[in-house]
Structure formats: structure tokens, C-alpha cells
């Protein structure tokens, strides 16, 4: 990184010669100060307080029990808690299914709209548009589609497909795929946008050379396009995986973690414990565990994928 951050300073002007020694050394610190202070106060401090409270009994509704708890909260998570493992399992399932499908569809979509064809601009705008839609709005839209009386299934039933009164969101057998479809709808454009951006920098000559050498479109894809996209794909899947793990907007509003806790992710479980159950000490311990798991998985993923490696 050093080469791009050339340490150059403006030539001192006569009257401001004092600044020559003072400014350049202090200036970068002054410039990062606002960001640094905000992040210390509103990210670092809350994180530390979560770690601190994870070792405490801290429950607004049971103040007489508050106090140092040692590792009791953690012992409870791994030995007694009957909701922890299922919610962790569902989180893993959710993240893996979402990231895999979003990547596959996003890649395909990016390759298609990267071609030259009539109507490309408007097509891009339309297929990317769900990217800007919020989790709550996605829930809104898909509740309208899924509702049993006037939803999509009713019109399908009118046409003789399926049954009347099907509510995919309250059936434990279908709720996962119903939520998955809704999340895919708004998640695929993220991958498509990032991959399309990276496709812009593939050299056309490479394809032409490969074409002259008789390589078909499939071989060109696997030997030129995919290696070029490697780092972008690794980074995008990691960011998206973390995001899908942490994000609760959609499931909170679409299924509320139900039916029967079937779609409760770990963060959703934490939010319920901390906010509705007021058991902040225990929620903090769960948060700590979630954070460690996330960090561990991310490091392993980056190592395994040899991110930024030279074999490009």
C-alpha cells in the first residue's frame, strides 16, 4: 500500500513556514479523528460493554440477581440452552443457501447483462432494482404475494394449480423456501452489480486470443472470466455471508422467527432474549459467542480460499 500513499507535502509558503513541520504530521490524525471518535464511542464501547456484560448476571426484571457471574452464561449456552443449537443450525443453513444461490444467480445475471444487446440499459436498471429495497419492504411485498386469500396461490388455484387457502408462511414445510425466495429476490442484484463491475476490467484481447486459439465459450469462461473474478467473488461472498448472518430485518418482519421457531436465526434469538426477555447478561454472552463464531469462520474462509493469492 505504501507506494500509493506517497508522503508529499505542499511547499511551504513564506508566511506559513511554521506549518511545514507541524501540519503534515498532525493532519492525518485530525482527518481521521471524527471517524475514529465516532467509532470508538458507538462501536468499540458497545462491543466492550457486551463482552463485560457477558460475564455478568444482568436482567432488568430480576435486579436482585445482578452481579458477577463468571462463565455461568457461557456454560448455560452450551449445556442447558435448548434454543441455541437449533438457531445456530438454522443460521448456518440460511447463510449457506442464500450465499450459494445468490452467487450462482448473480453471476449468471451479470454475464447476461454484460453482453451487448438491445434494451441493455433498461434491463440492467430493472433487474438491479430490488437491491435498493429494504428488508421490511421485501417482507411487505412478499406478504402480499404469499397471503392465502388474495395472494399468488389463489390465482394459481383459480387456474387449477394447487389448493385454495395455502399459506406458505405458516407451514413448517414451506416456510424456509418461501423466506429464501423473498431474500433471493433482493439479494441477487448485490452479487450481479459487484460481478458486473469487475467484468468491466477483463481485457477483451484475452477473449479474442482465446477465440482465435479455438477455445469455446465454456472454456473462455472457466479459464479467463472466472479466474479474473476470483477475488471479487471471495470478497463478495464473505461480506454477504456476514451480512446474511447478522441481518434480521426480513425474517423478523416476514416470519417473526416462526412458525414454531422454525426460522429463528441466532441474532434473532439474541434480539428476543435481550429486548423482549430483558436478559441482557445472557444476550451479551450469546452475542459474544456469535461474534467469535463469525470471526473464526471468516478467517478460515479467507485462508481456504487463498484470498489475494498470486495464482491468478
Amino acid at each position: 500500500m505504501a507506494h500509493s500513499a506517497a508522503v508529499a507535502t505542499p511547499p511551504p509558503k513564506g508566511k506559513a513556514s511554521k506549518r511545514r513541520s507541524a501540519t503534515p504530521r498532525r493532519l492525518p490524525y485530525l482527518l481521521i479523528a471524527p471517524a475514529g471518535l465516532l467509532m470508538l464511542g458507538f462501536i468499540a464501547y458497545p462491543v466492550i460493554s457486551v463482552f463485560y456484560y457477558s460475564l455478568q448476571n444482568y436482567n432488568v426484571t430480576k435486579p436482585w440477581r445482578n452481579g458477577f457471574a463468571g462463565f455461568d452464561n457461557f456454560t448455560r449456552i452450551f449445556t442447558e440452552d435448548e434454543l441455541f443449537w437449533p438457531s445456530l443450525g438454522f443460521s448456518a443453513q440460511w447463510v449457506i443457501v442464500q450465499v450459494t444461490l445468490q452467487l450462482a444467480l448473480g453471476l449468471a445475471l451479470a454475464l447476461i447483462v454484460n453482453q451487448t444487446f438491445i434494451g441493455r440499459g433498461i434491463s440492467r436498471a430493472m433487474v438491479f432494482s430490488p437491491w435498493a429495497v429494504s428488508g421490511v419492504l421485501t417482507s411487505t411485498i412478499w406478504i402480499l404475494l404469499y397471503n392465502s386469500s388474495t395472494g399468488f396461490s389463489r390465482y394459481l388455484a383459480d387456474a387449477g394449480i394447487g389448493e385454495y387457502g395455502t399459506s406458505v408462511l405458516s407451514d413448517t414445510g414451506t416456510v424456509f423456501w418461501a423466506a429464501t425466495l423473498a431474500e433471493l429476490w433482493r439479494g441477487v442484484p448485490f452479487f450481479a452489480i459487484l460481478i458486473l463491475a469487475d467484468l468491466q476490467s477483463v481485457s477483451k484481447e484475452l477473449y479474442e486470443a482465446a477465440s482465435v486459439d479455438g477455445a469455446g465459450r465454456m472454456r473462455q469462461f472457466f479459464h479467463i472470466t472466472l479466474p479474473h473474478l476470483r477475488d471479487a467473488i471471495i470478497l463478495a461472498t464473505l461480506l454477504r455471508g456476514v451480512w446474511e448472518f447478522n441481518n434480521v430485518d426480513l425474517l423478523y418482519t416476514l416470519t417473526g422467527g416462526g412458525p414454531a421457531g422454525e426460522t429463528t436465526t441466532l441474532p434473532l434469538y439474541v434480539a428476543n432474549t435481550g429486548i423482549e426477555g430483558h436478559d441482557f447478561g445472557y444476550a451479551s454472552a450469546l452475542t459474544t459467542v456469535a461474534f467469535v463464531i463469525l470471526l473464526f469462520c471468516s478467517i478460515v474462509y479467507l485462508r481456504l480460499s487463498k484470498f489475494g493469492g498470486d495464482n491468478k
Binding site: I43, Y45, V50, V242, F245, A283, L295
Partner: peptide, 12 residues
């Protein structure tokens, strides 16, 4: 900071 879930920071 990218790994820190905003949802889990709600209470602090």
C-alpha cells in the same frame, strides 16, 4: 467493524 452485527449492539 464489518463483522459486528448492528442488531446485537442494540442494547448497549
Amino acid at each position: 467493524s464489518q463483522f459486528i452485527p448492528g442488531a446485537l449492539m442494540l442494547v448497549p
